[in-house]
């Protein structure tokens, strides 16, 4: 199954860093996401997009994960030639991941 089937996400940007939340529809899926959606797995899935380090924050208070992805925006919002310079649509890229 895809992450899309069980979770939702919103992307944010700071400079050349993309922040991707991962929020399960059912909070009971949170431990499973912690187990399966590791930094290693996300780095592999996003390797065509994220060129830097990924940090994962666990937020049990809201049963959600947050991935902070460095070098993800082709030099950053203000100077990128990309169509989606903010990487707003990268939330959808994360949700394409198979688990």
């Amino acid at each position: 199954m895809k992450l899309y089937d069980i979770a939702h996400s919103r992307a944010g940007d700071k400079g050349n860093t993309s922040t991707l939340s991962l929020i399960p529809y059912s909070e009971t899926d949170y431990p499973m996401l912690c187990e399966k959606v590791t930094v290693q797995a996300v780095s592999k899935h996003m390797e065509g997009i994220v060129k830097g380090k990924i940090i994962r924050y666990e937020m049990p208070n809201v049963s959600s994960l947050l991935f902070v992805c460095e070098k993800a925006l082709l030099s950053g919002v203000t100077t990128s030639l990309a169509l989606d310079a903010h990487g707003k649509s990268l939330s959808s890229a994360l949700l394409e991941m198979e688990i």
């Binding site: 919103r10 944010g12 700071k14 860093t17 939340s21 924050y57 937020m59 809201v62 947050l66 902070v68």
Partner: peptide, 26 residues
């Protein structure tokens, strides 16, 4: 939840000029 985590680069330390806020206990 989507908005709480939006554009947060470190939920333990969210920097503003007024405070370094903690989002992990919200």
């Amino acid at each position: 939840k989507e908005q709480l985590l939006y554009e947060v680069v470190n939920p333990h330390e969210y920097y503003t000029p007024d405070v370094i806020a903690d989002f992990t206990s919200v």
